[in-house]
Amino acid sequence: MLNIKNLHVAIEGKEIIRGLNLEVKAGEVHAIMGPNGTGKSTLAAVVAGKEGYDVTQGEVLYHHKDLLEMATEERALEGIFLGFQYPVEIPGVSMTNFMRTALNEQRKYRGLDPIPPGEFLERMEKAKKLVDIHDKLTNRSVNEGFSGGEKKRNEIFQMAMLEPTLAILDETDSGLDIDALKVVAHGVNMLKSKDNATIVITHYQRLLEYIIPDFVHVLFDGKIVKSGGKELAIELEEKGYEWLKAEAV
């Protein structure tokens, strides 16, 4: 589904990602771990198509198509979803209206008519239940006045609404208490299928107790320095990242 080969990314001339390789197949959950400032969020931003990142080398294929050639919204319409680390507020635009617009754009892209109101409501109800979000949140403006935890739950709510093929969750666990963490993890697990894939970016092993990854990768200094199964996360939790620095060199 996603195939990243020898990716090099620079921001304002400074190289952040230096030769990253990653392959994600349908049905898989990948966790990307690593200390701060190693390029985790940069990777998410490049795949999603945020401006301001220069890909200096390498390629990213998504369903065998050149992802880097696609416009940001086209990537989203092709099924790539980014769960934001810091979701932005859009005053005056209700969550309901926002989701309806997004969903109908997706349907238009696929040659479908706008979603009938009844179906839309049903989908909303289901998604709300999944992440335990209340009506008052969906009637509010996008992320406006949401607590940190509500914002993160709201990201998973949107994921449930848009049913992406590839979801990248950028530090979705940061700032969450254990209950909220369970809710978010439950949401992600319920949305998992053999046809979609999830990349979970996190710095703590904690989230991975609830979202069980098939693969764990350690990103260090812009490269994946170690990959393994879920047991790697546990090892990291015990030993920290220091011991990997040696391997990175």
Partner: peptide, 29 residues
């Protein structure tokens, strides 16, 4: 903000529509 636009684009909403949404939200009152 660029962040607001990116957020909309990432949800599949193109720039023109995103501006329509954001501006209408701003003027809602």
């Amino acid at each position: 903000s660029d962040d607001q636009l990116f957020y909309c684009l990432q949800r599949g909403i193109d720039t023109e529509k995103a501006i329509g949404l954001i501006v209408n939200g701003y003027a809602k009152e």
